[in-house]
Design a protein around this nucleic acid. Sequence first.
DNA 1: CAGACTTTAAACAGTG
DNA 2: CCACTGTTTAAAGTCT
Length: 577
Amino acid sequence: MMTPQVITPQQMQQILQQQVLSPQQLQVLLQQQQALMLQQQQLQEFYKKQQEQLQLQLLQQQHVGKQPKEQQQVATQQLAFQQQLLQMQQLQQQHLLSLQRQGLLTIQPGQPALPLQPLAQGMIPTELQQLWKEVTSAHSAEETTGNNHSSLDLTTTCVSSSAPSKTSLIMNPHASTNGQLSVHTPKRESLPHEEHPHSHPLYGHGVCKWPGCEAVCEDFPSFLKHLNSEHALDDRSTAQCRVQMQVVQQLELQLAKDKERLQAMMTHLHVKSTEPKAAPQPLNLVSSVTLSKSASEASPQSLPHTPTTPTAPLTPVTQGPSVITTTSMHSVGPIRRRYSDKYNVPISSADIAQNQEFYKNAEVRPPFTYASLIRQAILESPEKQLTLNEIYNWFTRMFAYFRRNAATWKNAVRHNLSLHKCFVRVENVKGAVWTVDEVEFQKRRPQKISGNPSLIKNMQSSHAYCTPLNAALQASMAENSIPLYTTASMGNPTLGNLASAIREELNGAMEHTNSNESDSSPGRSPLQAVHPVHVKEEPLDPEEAEGPLSLVTTANHSPDFDQDRDYEDEAVHEDME
DNA sequence: CAGACTTTAAACAGTG
DNA sequence: CCACTGTTTAAAGTCT
């Protein structure tokens, strides 16, 4: 019941500054959001039915094609089909969740979300990196058709090819209200809460399901009261609606794509099912199971004591559509992964910098070693030296992930400082500060980042085993998510710094080449030029909140920003939101 | 398989 | 005594 995807007032402000909806627009959006919930249910049903339908068809095909060999092929294809369908189901949910969170994090309303450009492919947090890679390889052919994000004509794509009449029947099992699947523009009459007097898409299990809310409401009237008071037509709600709208758009876009894909598969099987070539993803039927399993089981392992992810293991992906949890991050990101090994991703500092915004807001574990992060923290400082506490502060400032489990990662930081020769402790007038011995650091560059065992295990279980199956899902996630990350503000002066550090890490990990540009001039990435601010201020005073930096992270209790202890308690606070 | 490396945990000492 | 800092050891896991 944690609500990690809280949208902070500051974020709200930012969003609102971009654009504000008119009440009319808001109305429409509200309806759309409600309809989205319905859509989800309908689509779930639809996919299930569709799957059954497919099985029937394929069985028939088997009967027709007598030869055993042929049957085998068909069976294989069938399985692949089932995978695809399962994928789509999961995709629906995952996508909703993820986008919802991501959208809340970094969406910039004024900016069109649709130009799906691979802006941040190198630095996409955690799985998104993999996702992106797989997208670009597996999905690259699919040119973005997605301008008509608003139309979800299920009836045309999937259905038409094979079983038009039947599918349309099963499409909406509880279509008592709208007869056909009017996914696109929800009709007033079809709103769920009008079907059932006391059911509301924004209300379930005694909690308000307004994105980021989850206030407890004992009964429906109190919920309505809450809804009217807390989510009235104001700036905040407006902005949240905007976000939700983008979520919907992305979902629709993705769905359209996957439908297309499915149709292609179906068409392919229908027309030439005797073709020697097997289905696209013949390998692992288990993977669909594994996917959800790994998502739910691996998470607790990877974040053993992270109060932020309690819902991850507990919330199966098959939850109701309106449930928004940390699962939305799809394994919550604790997967540490190098970007370079398997994929030679060109990495631009822009990518990195843009991604930093993500890490500042999302509790995703940054895919960098402690040593790299520490080094970067130090190099970012005006005098290339930091006290331990300042390093702590940098971590919490720059990475939402490090606002929790302070005992753990702080210990790790200290451990790294002591352990690595590249970190040199210097006695200062005011105490001891830590510096970086760049030579030493470079020495250890060539080796690869391995990272947390459990994390890696997690990654492997979910990636290696499930890769083929996940392709579509991942593709969709990546495709839709990436732009969202990248739209965030670029004004942070330290972006370039971290960017360089990260680039550093990447360079080292990739080729171990040309590693001088970044390390010798830590803050001088192109991005930094835009914002020359930071480096000047408060070399030693951790209490001082640094203007641009603190605004996102401090959300609920900005004054205490630099006191890490607050972050440990943050779970409690955030739950109140 | 060994070695290098990272992460996490924990014990311990010194200091204010 | 406590909290913080810093050092050190150990275990577990990955990667080459």
